[in-house]
């Protein structure tokens, strides 16, 4: 098929899907949520890392998109009184489960279904200075380097990716994803040494700073598409920065989670998990669909405890 025709067809399909979503909504057949009949805008919370995807896909009067770091939205979902503040949360796995862990601890009912759609994912890799090289393959070695004064970039604690990378680092240092808080006495000081070794900023800012402000970071862990994008820049190549897959392999999965069985969530979920969402996610560099294997991260309750410890 000629490329122009393919583009045209993709466009027509996308328009049809959006129109379909609106038609679906106008019928008031939310499906799966209890059909409360409220036809107000769909309230979508979206993590900062996916802001552009959400704004692109949900660009219409029927949606009210709130972009915030995962920790901020999580706090609102853990504490709200009365009506849930959102219908849908577009975030990374396992943030919805982490919210439910906190709610369970506060004897509140869970908000999220057991299975949520995972439209995309990205492996976590490390952009490293040449002298760090293959040490970036191992979190144990990265931890040793951090202890020796190297600056290892872990994304902001408040971001969705921050928790994912913290989880991967913990698994790497511990040597297994099957652990609980009984190992924290030994694990936390090492992990803390890594996360405190360099300023914690959103992933993309860390990567850009690593290249532009030479000496700021020796290694930065982030999603593969962001890391590759920066690594291909002329300055990164001049500095001979290298991309290293950090082991154990871990992945950030995008999830589109219906909040509190909201009946208004469907049209957003349809768009985000359908071709429109896939196009936008691919455009950002995410792999569509998400991988099927486990993400390689610790259990959500362990991640919650980890986050509380390292603060």
């Amino acid at each position: 098929m000629p490329p122009r025709l393919a583009k045209l067809l993709a466009f027509v399909v996308a328009v049809a899907m959006v129109a379909g979503a609106f038609w679906y909504r106008s019928r008031g057949e939310g499906g799966g949520g209890g059909g409360d009949g409220d036809d107000g805008a769909v309230r979508v919370a979206c993590i900062s890392e996916l802001a552009e995807v959400c704004r692109t896909v949900l660009d219409g009067d029927g949606f009210e998109v709130t972009v915030a770091d995962a920790a901020e939205t999580a706090a609102r979902l853990e504490d709200f009184q009365g009506e849930a503040p959102f219908d849908v949360w577009v975030t990374l796995d396992p943030w919805p489960e982490m919210v439910d862990v906190q709610r369970a601890a506060a004897q509140q009912p869970g908000l999220f279904p057991a299975q949520v759609p995972r439209p995309a994912s990205a492996a976590l890799v490390t952009l490293a200075r040449p002298e760090v090289g293959t040490d970036a393959r191992s979190w144990e070695r990265l931890a040793s380097r951090a202890q020796a004064g190297d600056n290892v970039g872990v994304p902001s604690h408040e971001t969705a990716l921050g928790a994912v990378v913290e989880g991967q680092a913990a698994v790497g240092i511990e040597g297994s994803s099957d652990f609980g808080s009984e190992v924290f006495d030994e694990l936390i000081p090492v992990l803390q040494g890594v996360v405190d070794s360099a300023p914690r900023l959103p992933s993309e800012r860390q990567l850009l700073r690593m290249v532009a402000l030479q000496g700021s970071y020796d290694a930065v862990v982030g999603p593969v598409f962001l890391v590759n994008r920066v690594a291909r820049s002329a300055e990164a190549q001049r500095q001979r920065l290298v991309v290293i897959p950090t082991l154990p392999a871990a992945r950030a999965d995008v999830v589109v989670a219906r909040v509190a069985a909201s009946s208004r969530a469907d049209q957003a979920i349809v768009l985000l998990t359908g071709e429109t969402g896939a196009t936008a996610l691919r455009g950002q560099g995410w792999a569509v669909p998400a991988g099927r294997e486990p993400t390689g991260l610790p259990d959500p309750d362990v991640l919650v405890a980890l986050r509380e410890e390292i603060g």
């Binding site: 850009l208 532009a212 002329a234 300055e235 001049r238």
Partner: peptide, 8 residues
């Protein structure tokens, strides 16, 4: 030094 890493 440029801020845009696309310029080495």
């Amino acid at each position: 030094r440029p801020g845009n890493p696309d310029v080495a």
